[in-house]
Simulated assay, not measured.
Amino acid sequence: MSIGLFHTRLSISNALLGAPVLTLDLLVDTAHKRVSGIASVFQATWPTVNYREPVWGSFSESKLTANVENHIILTLDGGPSRPPSQIAQTFHLRGILGSDWDSGFVDYRYEEQGQWHEVKHVAVHQAPSEQPHPGPHPQPLYAVAVQQAQTSGDLAQLKTVVQQAEQQVAHEGALRSALEHLKAEIARLEAR
């Protein structure tokens, strides 16, 4: 186990299609045996779940048998309030992890919309770290190019700008309405 302060990201699921997936982004303080971070539960199937709350807790090291490596016993609580308050706690987790913090099993429960959901004996895996979107950054659309194409009535130039916009906004939802407006403008110009 690392000594000092370190970050770990754990994915907790039973690998059944449509089952909830718990992701823990944790900051581990080995000197004080404390843990804090964010718990996120996501389930895409009905009933959908999108739970996210701060969590805190502690851990201890334990040898389960004489010839086996140390294990981590992890205890987490969470909710909109902060420790030491126990008011409105909406998350509880208890588990045993490998000494490297990337394997093990946990039981957890969380409250969403006034109803408690309990998940038992779920496998723990190291989660991939979140990386910024790979590839080149999208370039901004320049209103000048659009205005020039519109005022000159150059339909080919306007179509080129729209094609470039389509490529840029393939993954960007914020510019979709502007793109739809440009497509409508092309249709209006073609109708002339």
Rank of each mutant, 00 (worst) to 15 (best):
L26C: 07
D29V: 11
T30K: 02
T30I: 00
A31Y: 07
V35T: 11
S36I: 10
S36W: 07
G37N: 09
G37L: 07
I38N: 12
A39H: 05
S40P: 12
V41W: 10
F42W: 08
T45Y: 12
T45M: 11
P47W: 06
P47R: 07
V49Y: 05
Y51S: 11
Y51E: 07
R52V: 06
P54T: 11
V55G: 10
W56V: 03
F59A: 04
S62W: 10
S62I: 14
K63F: 09
A66C: 08
A66G: 06
N67M: 14
E69P: 09
E69D: 04
N70T: 12
N70F: 06
I73Q: 04
L74G: 00
T75H: 01
T75L: 12
T75W: 02
L76F: 06
D77C: 11
G78R: 02
G79V: 02
P80H: 06
P80N: 12
R82H: 14
R82M: 13
S85E: 13
I87A: 15
I87E: 15
Q89E: 14
Q89F: 05
H92F: 10
H92L: 13
H92C: 01
H92M: 08
L93W: 00
L93M: 07
R94V: 03
G95V: 02
I96G: 06
I96A: 03
I96Y: 03
L97A: 01
D100C: 07
W101G: 07
W101F: 08
D102Q: 11
S103E: 07
S103R: 08
G104L: 07
G104K: 03
F105P: 01
V106G: 11
V106L: 02
D107Y: 09
Y108N: 08
R109N: 12
E111A: 09
Q113G: 13
Q113K: 02
G114R: 03
G114E: 04
W116D: 09
V119Y: 04
K120F: 08
H121M: 14
H121T: 15
V124S: 02
V124T: 11
V124L: 00
Q126F: 11
A127K: 08
P128E: 13
P128A: 12
S129D: 00
P132Y: 03
P132M: 09
P132E: 13
P134M: 12
P134C: 08
H137W: 11
P138W: 03
P138V: 08
L141H: 07
L141P: 05
Y142K: 06
Y142F: 04
Y142M: 01
V144K: 04
V144S: 04
A145R: 10
Q150Y: 07
Q150L: 01
S152Y: 06
G153A: 05
D154Q: 09
L155Y: 09
A156K: 15
